[in-house]
Design a protein around this nucleic acid. Structure first.
Lengths: 408, 408
DNA sequence: AAGAACTTTTTAAATATTTAATAAAAGTAT
DNA sequence: ATACTTTTATTAAATATTTAAAAAGTTCTT
């Protein structure tokens, strides 16, 4: 199934695409999207321009219906500043989050407000491209139902697991095809598409909206079925030569260990990921070691999931607790490597497994003490992400915005 | 022994210090120092200004005797461009390289030419500050003998091993004192002092003058008595929160391994550094395993050094070869960690141990194949540094220049 | 309630920088 | 050798941006 490509209506109102030759205005729109309504002075800190210049740019943006005046801010004894914000309908961004077992779609307006309800499609990602068409159709339906004007959509950002090169639009792990997967989406949607690895989009979300905001050197661990790492250095997301930086889950940790799906043995992911937890839980149940787990999963081994193990641990199940402690130990040892290499100020734990906090944080801390030079281990904090389930989709939407507005 | 602090003579000729309020001119001087004589157009690529503007800045610099016209460059069918370069005596930079067992001092002019002969002081670095005064005296003598005008010295850059925080001027490993070591030097010299860790200064030298020039994502390994790592990400040297990033030598590699001087067991440095080579060579000789080493060191175990082991290996000494192969294996495993985390385009091996290339490179490559995801291991090259023994001192001099000219 | 103090916005003048046009110098083709 | 093309340098005009001063709008103080 394909969709016709929509050309921009040349007689329509001014839209954000026409700003392509004005870097300063695009920068203002970007900051108003990311950080909400601001005063002239606040904007000056980002765009490094004088007050008269910014005002004149804002006035132009106002006449183009891209920016609105939103009343006045507070003052500590002086004239109150005007507040400026993006017009809701200045533009829209579509964010798609492809997970292993489900895909969700959200549309954001220029105020970074979600304009759609939770839209979830149950689909299992695979090596091939079979899930592309259902995702395109699902997304097009949402755009149509919500009456989002196509010519105001800046583009579509898609986060997904796997080894993603956002420059070439290729995922080496999933949705592999002769043509780059981003290009396939781009043709089907008839608009700009940007793909990125999920651990990186979440790190980016932390940088813009979360605990890493305003920080320079942060590591964001994404604990899900696999183990991902987003690296923030000098205040920017680091991608590496091909976009594959952060393969933390495949650090070799155990000599002659379990075979990993990457082909090597004893990767961190084989002993400290969601997948590893499920494996250990199954092994334990077969050996009769767990008292609560069998009930919680109704004796169906396929129901095993991180959440169930955490639930059993919370109920006091010794075996589940020991699984999580073990996972924490290995994660901590892995983090010790990262801390010594990066000397970060902050490590953020996010993803499904961060629900197991109370069980994995203490062994993580302990392993760091064992394996880290004290000057480095102590200079750093570990925090659990405060961004909710929308983190990935928010992150990839913001990345798309930068991708579109920053270029040239 | 102390030296009087010299105040800048307010009636002297214009000097570079007076450029503090002209960022553009400082940027031009910096580029002419780092990359030599250039045309107007070449400079435009760096400083992002129009031709008329650059010409006017260059003319100002010429009247201030900081820049000279150096004839004309070549053209492919048009008017020949003028070449501009720094005046030799526009400014000077002093570089000091403190190694474990010796310290060397060089003075560079504004053309990045060394204006001193090799000046080496045999001193062993220690936890205390006892070597500071001899170094200051030695350096002051050189400045005096070579008649370097003090008011034209931009400052003194000092590279040293250890955990160095260049922001605060503290070394946590050597020359520890209540007052930051950089501050002590600054007071004694009466001029700007900048200190940095040796692995980082060498990585910086590679970035500006060596194999990493123009590259974005490079790791520079410094193999000496210890193992250092300089990280270049997004085309910039990465230092981490406190400047301690790159503690590669203290990654835990062997469970319950040999005690490291950092207090932990089984660090990479205990099995793959110059110190480790010396230890293994001694052990082997005590056990009678080496046939050539004893002759080469004249039966004095204290003479053991990387170079001797390499020499024995070159002569065919089996035991020495096996030591180096072992070192290569562990280094390769360590590099596999780094490759998966950074997805670098290039790894540069430098330092004393890179003389052992032919013996350590093959096992390094092999270990990378074993421990790395192929997409990452294959996308990257390993090269041996082509910068000579001056690398560190050139790097720290260039860092001082940036430190002084970039600020504000 | 009036004025002082403070902050932001507006305006106008001053400055900085670029663009575009022209001139100059060199190489290439006829 | 002369004309043409290419590249760089110079100049002048146009544009962009900032600075500084004035005006406007709030809060605080008395």
């Amino acid at each position: 199934m394909t969709f016709t490509q929509v050309k921009y209506d040349e007689t329509s109102d001014l839209n954000v695409v026409e700003l392509k030759n004005n870097f300063q205005k695009r920068k203002i729109l970007k900051h108003l999207f990311l950080y909400g309504a601001m005063t002239n002075t606040d904007l000056g800190k980002f765009v490094k321009l004088s007050t008269p210049k910014i005002i004149s740019l804002l006035n132009e943006l106002k006449t183009e219906n891209l920016v609105e005046e939103l009343g006045q801010g507070t003052s500590s004894g002086g004239r109150r500043p005007n507040l400026y914000g993006n017009a809701e309908d200045a533009f829209y961004i579509v964010g798609i989050s492809i997970n292993i077992y489900k895909t969700s779609v959200s549309v954001y307006n220029a105020k970074n407000q979600k304009v759609t309800d939770d839209q979830i499609l149950t689909l299992t990602i695979s090596h091939g491209t079979s899930i592309i068409d259902p995702i395109v159709e699902f997304t097009e339906n949402i755009i149509r139902e919500k009456n989002i004007p196509r010519d105001k959509i800046l583009g579509i950002g898609i986060e997904m697991p796997g080894m993603v090169d956002s420059e070439t639009g290729i995922n080496k792990t999933y949705m592999v095809s002769d043509e780059p997967v981003a290009e396939i989406f781009r043709k089907k949607f008839g608009m700009e598409v940007f793909i990125e690895n999920d651990a990186k989009t979440r790190a980016f979300a932390e940088l813009k909206f979360g605990l890493a905001h305003g920080r320079k050197n942060v590591l964001a661990i994404h604990l899900d079925w696999g183990i991902g790492l987003g690296i923030i250095v000098n205040g920017k997301l680091y991608k590496g030569r091909d976009g594959f930086a952060g393969e933390f889950g495949h650090l070799p940790m155990v000599d002659n260990g379990i075979l990993c799906k990457c082909g090597k043995q004893g990767c961190l992911e084989t002993i400290a990921s969601g997948t590893a937890i499920a494996r250990m839980a199954k092994e334990g149940m077969k050996a009769g070691s767990s008292s609560f787990l069998p009930q919680l999963i109704q004796d169906d081994l396929e129901n095993i999931e991180i959440r169930k193990v955490v639930q059993a641990a919370t109920m006091g199940d010794q075996y589940s607790i020991s699984i999580l402690a073990n996972v924490g130990h290995w994660l901590g040892k892995g983090l010790a490597y990262l801390i010594q290499i990066f000397n970060p100020e902050l490590i953020i734990l996010g993803g499904r497994m961060s629900e197991a906090n109370q069980f994995i944080l203490p062994p993580i801390q302990q392993a760091i003490q064992i394996f880290c030079i004290p000057e480095l281990g102590n200079a750093m904090e570990i925090k659990v992400s405060e961004l909710g389930s929308q983190a990935g989709i928010q992150g990839v939407a913001a990345m798309l915005l930068e991708h579109v507005l920053d270029r040239q």
